[in-house]
Design a protein around this nucleic acid. Structure first.
Lengths: 225, 225
DNA sequence: ACCTGAACACCGTTCAAGT
DNA sequence: ACCTGAACACCGTTCAAGT
């Protein structure tokens, strides 16, 4: 993970890692069955860090009085989203791997820390009184929004970091004004927004509707399950 | 793209593509400056297909009376999300590339079809009377939710496709019931949900709140900008 | 139990050369 | 303008062997 953080995903090769560890390439195969298994190990470390973050906070907040059950699950999911986002931003080169790997990795083969986080979310929602289908809907809303938002938020806008002029730094001279007037006008604003707040408020609204029911009419009165 | 669809991303190498085309590997460098440029070409084809989908529909619906401006932008963004989802599902091996590449590709260097789609969305929102910051908030909500949802929706649940028994097919015997009771209980339901509907309703609720304002209190009365 | 060393079948990309 | 051919510096992984 250190190697990926320092030099990017492409730098993580069996041979490179081996020389960094002062060992022959084949020695690594005692610890990981393949390159893919090694990458899954990196994903494992990512989720272990998320869990450690959450556990550390939990201890600190144990003193505080328990919030009423109706809002507690919302707060807890926001807390999870926040921890996940922090870790994603701490390891920007690892995150694309974490975001896409589950597409090909069967559920039952996921690393334990990832399964533990999944279980934690589902158990929390069960305790809050949601039926199975609602639990899954909320679970999907949480992960889809957090993963998607972190993927678009981290998008690269800067074309030439050396350039002092903001327009040239963004490389907007490459976009013909006739073809892309709105993109040119709006692009400079892409960088300055409160990502944390947008992530949290989008999540809040999705949780509301997912908890209310599949129709998502979103004008229901109560919010308690 | 055909090669990736048939045999996965890993099969797309300069050498393999060259032999498929009956040519020496170095001949490809007349058409793409590097492997990365080739991959960006695949992303370009992805967005070209989304745009073609949208254009085809537009012609067909031209006859219908124009909906009132207040709802038109919502419908159009739903239509875009739907087209994007269709293309993502048509090219499942390409989609992870499309979802993660913008993280490292500067805005101004994106392929034209991708920029055209971006411009289309921003122009639509401008015509609907939204200010610059609201346009961006809606734009981010759209792409984050669609990309994130397609990433989680497509997640692999099946561990052993050969196995007739549903529990073993999912590989749930790998998950100790003591450690993961909720995950085990809920996993079989992960596959059966109406993804199209969930995607559309989540998007609907996000668009409502993004249009209403940054606070996202979500209890505002009107929906017109 | 843990590591080495040689070998194999691949990669992307360079350079110089051909038609 | 378009393609070839040899070469270079890498890959992941095999197999057999060492301590």
């Amino acid at each position: 993970m250190d190697l990926v953080d320092r030099e990017g995903l492409a730098a993580l090769t069996m041979r490179r890692l081996a020389t960094d560890l002062g060992v022959e390439p084949m020695a690594l195969y005692r610890y990981a069955a393949s390159k893919q298994a090694l990458l899954d190990g990196v994903i494992e470390m990512f989720f272990a860090e998320v869990n450690a973050d959450l556990a550390a906070q939990t201890v600190a907040e144990h003193a505080r009085p328990q919030a009423e059950a109706a809002v507690a699950w919302r707060q807890e999911l926001q807390r999870i989203a926040h921890a996940y986002a922090r870790v994603a931003q701490a390891h920007p080169s690892v995150f694309p791997l974490v975001a896409t790997r589950p597409v090909t990795l069967p559920l039952a083969r996921r690393p334990a820390p990832m399964l533990q986080l999944n279980e934690h979310v589902l158990a929390l929602l069960a305790r809050s009184g949601f039926d199975e289908h609602t639990r899954l809907r909320i679970y999907r809303a949480l992960t889809a929004w957090v993963v998607g938002y972190l993927l678009v938020d981290k998008r690269q806008m800067i074309d030439n970091p050396e350039e002092p002029d903001p327009l040239l730094r963004l490389g907007l001279h490459r976009l013909p004004a006739a073809q892309y007037p709105h993109l040119r006008a709006t692009a400079p604003l892409l960088a300055d927004h409160d990502a944390e707040r947008e992530l949290a408020s989008g999540l809040g609204i999705l949780l509301d509707q997912a908890a209310e029911g599949p129709a998502g009419a979103a004008r229901a009165a109560g919010r308690t399950p």
